[in-house]
Structures are given as structure tokens and as C-alpha cells.
Design a protein around this nucleic acid. Structure first.
Lengths: 259, 259
DNA sequence: GCGTTTTTGATCGTTTTTGAAAGAAACGCA
DNA sequence: TGCGTTTCTTTCAAAAACGATCAAAAACGC
């Protein structure tokens, strides 16, 4: 049966606009009016609602995706200061994730970069203690499990003994860890003992432990000891790592990947 | 759609609507009226029933599948909607919190309002399954513990059996719970069984269980049963709650506060 | 068959959505 | 900067959809 131009329901129309913005990156009010056969007033109202819901960002004459916001671009640069290196490390790490894997994602900027690469990986199960990683994947992506625990404000991660509650009940194939410093003698260190506690718990039970750290962290030692090198299976870092350092780690049985 | 000469039975019609919504993703009241040859009043009643049974989600002019329901649109509408009432409810609830208390904060818009009022309460320990509540208190406020668990995207809460890991290790003086519907006969109900599971765990071990719900939720029944009224100690709602309702609850031993 | 309960359709007042119009603000260009 | 044009916000009224209520119709049990 052919419908004589059956009108579209309001929520359906808004969903249409939302996906259009997502696909095109930008839409114009006038285009929407012609395509959707409603008045500009209605279009504007729709955009207003969608903006309130955080689905898009209105601009003069139309709307753009949240990602396209200038503001956000600035912000992203900040988090990725050494963004080229950290981004490359994240991309390299991403290649290590197989289909259907269950992975743990530690807190930190490098691992956060990895989280951004997983938005389409609905095949994965992701365990994390990072609120930012969870926020990054809030709308789509893998199944997300958060470990509980005390919120450490500065890093926006969950730490401390309570984390054992959930961590004791799950297993991950691969754990991607961050660190504040790594050193041949002292192993891995971080600033907060509670944070270290979690990293240890994870490392203990993960099938494979993969450390993501830019070369700037090499030979840096922080306050809280996390673990020795034998807890680590793979190190993904950048090409500026001293060759002797890499060689020494490889002799200890680690796989060292330079992004 | 082909019509039998004889009228069809009501349950048969509803099943038809249900499968239509499932297939099409969206249906319009007017279309249903024409195809089913019944009045709009009947269609509306059918949709109402199907919605109560969790089979679909009503929207202005029709209905959509539960999967299609415009995610945050639903949630955010709620945060804005009766915001004055919810704000008052939150303020009233806030008065119940004593110095140094440990409190649990459930997910939902009303409890989120309460979270906003706690930014200066550094004396508290707050346990929550809500990422939004945690985000609200990300910079300052009480000590925050998050329970772990699977991330439920639509509500941005952690749900499911894994939550028992942390919840088993903590005790809270007061638990502030939200709900999708509360009803004298059916008690408390919500949309997701995993969500209900968490609410139950919390209610079981909290010193005092305080339900925050605007009167619009009264006599609404959702899909997943949470608990009976005897699990609740205090109900904080608004003045629009039918007096008989309040009276009946008080008779059952609940404290009913009208904000 | 008859009284009762359930279902249905109609009506009315209310809420939501929509489109139009007028003044304000932003933009492009000289 | 100033000016014309486009776009935006605000406001209002019409239209569509809604919930509540009531009476008629149908289904039901005995």
C-alpha cells in the first residue's frame, strides 16, 4: 500500500537529523527544511532539543557534530600533548586486540587514546577503572564493565582495595596498562599506592599484560612501586627509547614494540 | 495489512500492534486506527497497556520499540521536565543526610539532583552506581566510591551481578533510591532487571532506604520488579501525591515527606 | 435469559506540536 | 565601521494529539 506522504513523527525526525549530523558532520537549517518538509521553526526547535541532549552543536545556519566543535578540538590537543606519539602508541596497541577479546584498560592519557579507537569494536568486552574511558565509550562501542572502588579525583579512576570485588570475578585476555615511570632497576612505579594496588591486581590475572608508555617515562621513578618487569609481557612505546633499554628488556623476555 | 471481515479480539489486536512495532520500529496512532478499524481511544489504550508491559515506548503520535527509544532524549527530558519538583524533592532529601553519614546514591534524574547538592559536603562518604553522579562530584565533594559492574548505556549506571563485588564490602547509613514507577499493589518497578538487581542489593544492606520519586511515578508499573514497600523506610515526593496514597503508605509504617 | 464485567467509542478540556510573524542578533561585504 | 541580508529568538494562535470521563455495546458467567 502506498502511503500518501505520511507525516513523520517528531522523535523520528529528530533521530533523522541526529544521524544526518553524525554522517555529514554538518547540516544547514535550510537543507533540513526542504528535505523534511517542515517549517524552519520546527527545525530550529529540533536542533535546540538535540543540542540540549548533547547530540550536536548548533552553529549559525545549522549544526555540527560535537566532535567538530572548535572547543573540543583544542581540548583534544591538550590531552594529546605529545599526541602524535601517544596516538601512535595507541594505534600500535590497538593492533594487538583480537576479535572478541576481553581487555582491561588502565587509566591515563595513553590508554584513553586507545579507548577512542574502540568506538566501533562492539565485539569486545572492556573492563576499566577509568571514568574517562567509560565516558569516551558512553554511547557506543564494546560492552563496558567498570571495576568499582574509591574515586581518585586527580586521575578520574577507581582505586583501592574495593576494586578486588569486581576484579576477582572477571578475567581479561589482555590488559593495557599505563604508568608514571618505568626503570630498568626499579620496574614500574606510579604516584599513588592505591593506584598501584589496582594495577597489581589486574596484572596478576590478565592473560597478557601490555604496558603503554611514551619514552619520556623511561628511567623515571615515582613514589609507589607497581611491579617488576616480569609481570609485563609487552611494552609499546615510541622510537625515542634508548636502544640499550629496549635490548635489555628483550633479553628479559619482553616484546618491545616501537610505534 | 489485510483485514478479516469479522472484528478481531483485543489481545489479538495488541499482539498485532506489538509485532508491528517490532518490525517497523515505529508506528503512528493514525495508521493503526485506519488499519485496525477501531477508534483512536482504543489504540491509545492498547499502547498504554503495551507500554506498561514493557513491550514498547510511547511517543507523541505513536510508539517505538524499546531499542529505538530515543535514548538520552528520554533521560534528558526527564532531567528538565518537572525539574522544579525534582529539585525540591532533592532538597528535602538532602536534609535527611547527617554529618559524616555514608550514603548510597542510585542512578536517575532525581538522585542526580541530590548529587548536585553535595558538592560541599566533604564530610560524607558517597557510594553510587551512577556515572553521572560521579561526574557531578568529579572535582570536589564527598569521598566517592563507585560500585563496579556492567555499564548500562541508557542510564549511565553500573548494573548486574558484578556489582555485588563492591556492595558486599560496604555499608551505607542511608540509601537514596530512584524508581521508574511505584504502585500500592505492585510496589517498586523499573525498566531493567539488572538495574532492579542492584537496587535490591543496596536496599538489603542499607541502614535506611529512602525513595525519591515525583508523584508522576505514582501507580505507574514498569517491567522489572524491584521490591515491596516494606523494604522502604521513607518516601520523599511532591505535594501532588494523592492523599489517599500517602495515607495508605503511612499506615504501612513509611514516613512520607512532601517537598 | 439476565445481571455483571469488560471493552469500546464519543466527547470535552488540556497539553503538545507546529507554523507564521515581528523584532533582535549575527553575518558578509564594502 | 556601516549597511543590507540572512538567520535567530520570541511570541502567539491554530492544529493535532492527549488523558479523563461517561454511556453504549459486547462478552461473560450463571
Amino acid at each position: 500500500m502506498i502511503q500518501p506522504a505520511s507525516p513523520i513523527l517528531a522523535p523520528q525526525r529528530r533521530e533523522l537529523i541526529r544521524s544526518l549530523v553524525k554522517d555529514e558532520g554538518i547540516v544547514r537549517v535550510e537543507d533540513l527544511r526542504q528535505n523534511l518538509k517542515v517549517s524552519v521553526a520546527t527545525i530550529r526547535r529540533d536542533l535546540e532539543i538535540l543540542e540540549e541532549n548533547g547530540k550536536l552543536q548548533r552553529i549559525h545556519g545549522g549544526a555540527v557534530t560535537m566532535e567538530n566543535r572548535l572547543e573540543e578540538a583544542v581540548f583534544d590537543d591538550k590531552t594529546n600533548q605529545a599526541s602524535t606519539e601517544k596516538g601512535r602508541i595507541a594505534e600500535e596497541a590497538c593492533k594487538l586486540i583480537g576479535k572478541g577479546d576481553s581487555v582491561y584498560l588502565d587509566g591515563g592519557s595513553t590508554t584513553l587514546g586507545l579507548a577512542r579507537l574502540l568506538k566501533d569494536r562492539t565485539d569486545l568486552t572492556l573492563v576499566t577503572n577509568s571514568l574517562r574511558a567509560a565516558a569516551e565509550l558512553a554511547d557506543s562501542g564494546p560492552k563496558v564493565l567498570l571495576i568499582g572502588g574509591e574515586l581518585r579525583r586527580i586521575s578520574q579512576t577507581m582505586v583501592g582495595p574495593l576494586t578486588s570485588g569486581v576484579l576477582g570475578q572477571v578475567h581479561v585476555d589482555k590488559a593495557f596498562m599505563g604508568t608514571m615511570g618505568f626503570c630498568l632497576r626499579s620496574g614500574l612505579t606510579t604516584t599513588d599506592p592505591n593506584e598501584a594496588y589496582v594495577k597489581n591486581l589486574v596484572a596478576d590475572q590478565a592473560g597478557q599484560v601490555i604496558l603503554l608508555a611514551d619514552s619520556g617515562k623511561a628511567e623515571k621513578v615515582s613514589f609507589a612501586r607497581v611491579s617488576d618487569w616480569d609481570a609485563i609481557d609487552v611494552l609499546v612505546t615510541d622510537g625515542n627509547l634508548p636502544k640499550l633499554f629496549a635490548k635489555s628488556l628483550r633479553k628479559r623476555g619482553l616484546k618491545v614494540l616501537l610505534a
